[in-house]
Design a protein around this nucleic acid. Structure first.
Lengths: 94, 94
DNA sequence: GGAAAATATCGAAACATTTCAATGAATTAA
DNA sequence: TTAATTCATTGAAATGTTTCGATATTTTCC
């Protein structure tokens, strides 16, 4: 990703503006590397399609990266996107 | 503000997840210090109550700080909140 | 005090997001 | 190949956000 523009920053912000999605990110962080989708069903009190919906928003913005492993999917944090977003935020400051 | 928790980060994210609000922040940045509310009516193609609504969301989260000056209100960026938000984001990374 | 200017509030329409039950698709294991 | 497991999609209800016209509030200037 080059320089993040306002439209991209808006999308990242929106992806981060939901308690379930922040919870998912903290679960990934807790796992330290890869989090399996299946593990979320234990920790998040929502129906499976809802969790799937939130994961989609996080993957579509590339905040997390999915990897298929058999019939499971595991996710990892994409630090680059967060870093680019931080650069954008720094640019807002006076 | 002490350590920003997930609930606060969610609110900041939501405040930043709208094109008009990002535009307002870039206008404040452009002015380099203080932006007058009135100046936004020229640069943003929305009715006055809509702009007022967006300013409210930015002030309620303390992303910008208002100051009354006669019958005008001027706004400045609150770097601290952005910095605290950035610390929260860094904490999401692996 | 009365008129003008700047911002805020209210209420409703339009639009977007979240949630879930039902169902589909892909993969594994028996 | 059949059954079980995991994730994705669809469609609809509930909820939340954005927008604006109308109107209220606050301050200034005459």
């Amino acid at each position: 990703m080059a320089q993040m523009d306002a439209k991209q920053a808006e999308k990242i912000s929106k992806a981060l503006s939901d308690p379930t999605r922040l919870k998912i990110l903290s679960e990934i962080k807790k796992k330290n590397d890869w989090l399996y989708c299946v593990d979320l069903y234990d920790n998040i009190n929502l129906a499976q399609p809802s969790i799937c919906h939130h994961l989609k928003q996080l993957t579509e913005t590339s905040i997390i990266l999915p990897e298929k492993e058999g019939r499971n999917i595991k996710y990892t944090m994409n630090n680059e996107v967060i870093d680019d977003y931080i650069v954008f935020l720094q640019g807002l400051k006076k």
